[in-house]
Design a protein around this nucleic acid. Structure first.
Lengths: 148, 148
DNA sequence: TATTGTTATACTCTATAACTATA
DNA sequence: TATAGTTATAGAGTATAACAATA
């Protein structure tokens, strides 16, 4: 007999359906207002990993290099990020998040955390416990892709 | 003593951080290709709940009425949705998903399910089990908002 | 010559304001 | 007059192609 396959532990279709709904929830929980979703994701990336080259950001966010040039220009115009030169290579542009950028991330997270908490409070205690128990696993799952 | 508060069961900040990463994963797992994220969400909504009025769709998706008019026009142009008249009220437009729309949803779900399964397979079995155990709770959580 | 980034251009998406049609 | 939807217009966001600068 083959070992227990993934499909037997976790039904793929069920999981995908739940994920679809969950994605919809999250999307409406933190709508893009002043900054696009990619913009927010890029700022979070910079906050987590420190300054990065423009090309690297483009690759991580799954946008083209010209796309990232333009996104960074908008972020810079809004004071959320900043371009820096690389002393060792004149072609390179290094991008970093500003204090205003960090503050924007903080505000968005606060809003989302508050709303999620409100929603969770309406669920049965067992549901909340199950989600809490799965949190470390979900975090590890989330960290599997490139690193967004 | 007050009853056990949410904050004690599930740390808000931790949860929000995990959700941020998870959202990034999901976003890159199913990028918008032929149809926008709102377009896909609208089609899924129509598939799940049946035909709906244009205004109701706009409200559910969190876009303006003109925005939904234009989205439905694009979906209709691509053969994914269809406008119908309401016999009892000449002002009303009822929107429904077409077979091609359903097929597009099926394909997207298949891709996402496959990729998620691949990612899950790289996690420890306990993580997979914890996520599977939390699935019903996550589904109930996802169904709390309007209904996306 | 290859790599890094920008500029030029076009198309999709979505918003606000003004409009049309039905109730 | 209020409601349902569309049209007009503008701006954000992102892609491909062509370009400039540095290695």
């Amino acid at each position: 007999m083959p070992r227990l396959a993934t499909a037997e532990v976790l039904d793929r279709t069920e999981f995908a359906a739940a994920v679809e709904r969950l994605f919809g929830l999250l999307r409406r929980l933190t709508p893009a207002q002043d900054v696009s979703l990619t913009g927010v994701s890029t700022l979070a990336n910079l906050e987590r990993g420190g300054p990065r080259r423009l090309t690297e950001l483009a690759s991580r966010e799954g946008v083209t290099q010209p796309g990232m040039t333009q996104l960074v220009s908008r972020l810079e115009r809004d004071g959320l990020a900043r371009r820096t030169a690389d002393p060792s290579d004149g072609r390179v542009v290094v991008v970093e998040v500003t204090d205003a950028g960090r503050e924007l991330l903080r505000q968005r997270r606060l809003v989302r955390a508050t709303r999620l908490t409100e929603l969770l409070a309406t669920l049965p205690a067992e549901d909340e416990a199950a989600i809490a128990a799965a949190l470390p696993a979900l975090r590890r799952l989330a960290s599997l892709l490139p690193p967004g």
